[in-house]
Simulated assay, not measured.
Amino acid sequence: MQKFGVDDLRGVIAVTPTPALPGASALTARDTVDLGETDRMIRALVADGVDGLITNGTLGEMATLTLAEWQAFTACVADAVADTAPDLPLFVGATAPNTRDTVDRIRFLRDLGVRGVILGRPMWSELGADTLLAFYRGVAGLFPDMAIVLYDNPEAFKGPIPTAAYAALAEVPQIIGAKYIAITPKFAADMAAVGGRLRLLPLESDWLAAHTLHPETALGCWSSSALCGPEPVLALRDAIRRGDVGTARHLTRRIEWTYEPFLARTNFPEFSKYNITLEKLRFDEAGYVTAGPARPPYHVVPGPYAEGARENGRRWRTLVGEVRGQDS
């Protein structure tokens, strides 16, 4: 029986890194996952009140982890969630270049008791819409008890999910949501196409705009910035829920202020070349989690980009202090 549905994708879905031990950037490094920090990170997010978790997307280094590392990390996350909040929506990445490896990874998740997966597409070659639909339908058919969140990253997967494909995917009961990149004119078309049958999750800084346009269905967001400290995003969630538009606008403006020096805001295609390292740098600078070094080959990043990420982390830390001060 499927554990999670569309209504479970509400509020703040935090997107986590895979914490790395010192030396993880070496080409010969193995067993690089910091399992102690992983356990602490998950327990902190649960205690602070996030509404769900996504792991092992891009910044979670699905592209760099060995199978053994991914299994160790996933088991650690699953154990921490089971111990602290067994009904918390948890979606673990299982994307791989080989669809059969994806199937094996989802079997591993199911055997652990995990009932949610975030799933991108094989990306060696771009998938046509018919191939994309066949891939997702085939995986869903093999795992009727697994809830699937689509990972719609046009840079990683050589293009967005077409609107017509969204309409078709919304008919698959196991597909309950999508991690969505940006609010563009296509977002409105995709919202109309899915008709509330799956939840499109915008970035937290876009959430108020999405909710203003679609108050009945834009009920959640994804946030990697929650790993710089979740308080600002949780405060935004609470303001949206109680209809406090003034506070929600203020928080959104302050969140946008933190992003001003961050490459993702000025050149997303360029950011996508370095995003793993840039995300981990800002997490470490903010101090909520020790993300550690990026794994090869993504550990190389230009100095100005790195400093922009650190400044984003510093600004987010300032914003956390502001929110705490308002709550006290």
Rank of each mutant, 00 (worst) to 15 (best):
D244C: 08
T16R: 09
T163A: 03
Y259H: 05
A29Q: 12
T28S: 07
I13R: 08
I106C: 09
E37W: 12
P97T: 03
L109R: 06
V50N: 06
D244F: 05
K280Y: 01
V194I: 14
A14I: 13
N153D: 10
G308V: 14
V194R: 11
P97Y: 10
S225P: 02
V245K: 11
C221M: 10
A24H: 09
G141S: 07
D83M: 11
L200W: 14
F108C: 08
A147H: 08
L281S: 03
E256V: 14
P302H: 07
L219E: 04
A294H: 02
L53R: 04
Q174G: 02
K280A: 04
P215M: 15
R241P: 00
E307M: 08
R254W: 14
S224R: 11
R317Y: 02
D39N: 09
R314P: 00
D238E: 13
E171Y: 05
A218M: 09
D152A: 00
L127N: 00
K179L: 00
V320E: 04
L213A: 15
A164F: 01
P173C: 06
V301L: 12
I42V: 15
R249W: 05
A182M: 14
V289P: 12
C221D: 04
G195S: 07
L236I: 14
R100Y: 12
I176C: 10
K273H: 13
I54D: 00
L133G: 11
D87P: 00
V300M: 09
A68C: 09
L21A: 01
L88I: 06
V77E: 09
F271N: 01
R137Q: 13
R110N: 04
G128V: 10
N312F: 09
A78G: 08
A209V: 12
P19F: 04
I13F: 13
L133N: 03
D244P: 02
L213E: 14
V46I: 15
F4S: 01
A188S: 15
T217P: 05
P304W: 14
R197E: 00
D111P: 07
L35R: 04
R121G: 01
G52N: 02
V300S: 11
G195F: 04
M146Y: 02
T163P: 07
V301C: 14
H250D: 15
R197A: 00
T252C: 05
R30G: 08
R121F: 08
A182G: 15
T266M: 11
G5A: 13
G325Y: 10
R107Q: 06
A264S: 13
T131E: 09
D79A: 15
Y166R: 04
V15S: 02
G229L: 13
E69P: 06
V33I: 15
C76E: 14
V172T: 04
G93N: 03
V289H: 06
V172W: 10
G243L: 10
G313W: 10
G113L: 08
I106N: 04
R242V: 10
G220Y: 11
V81K: 10
R310H: 04
D83I: 00
R100M: 12
I181P: 00
E37P: 07
A286W: 06
Y288S: 11
L198G: 03
M146L: 11
E171M: 08
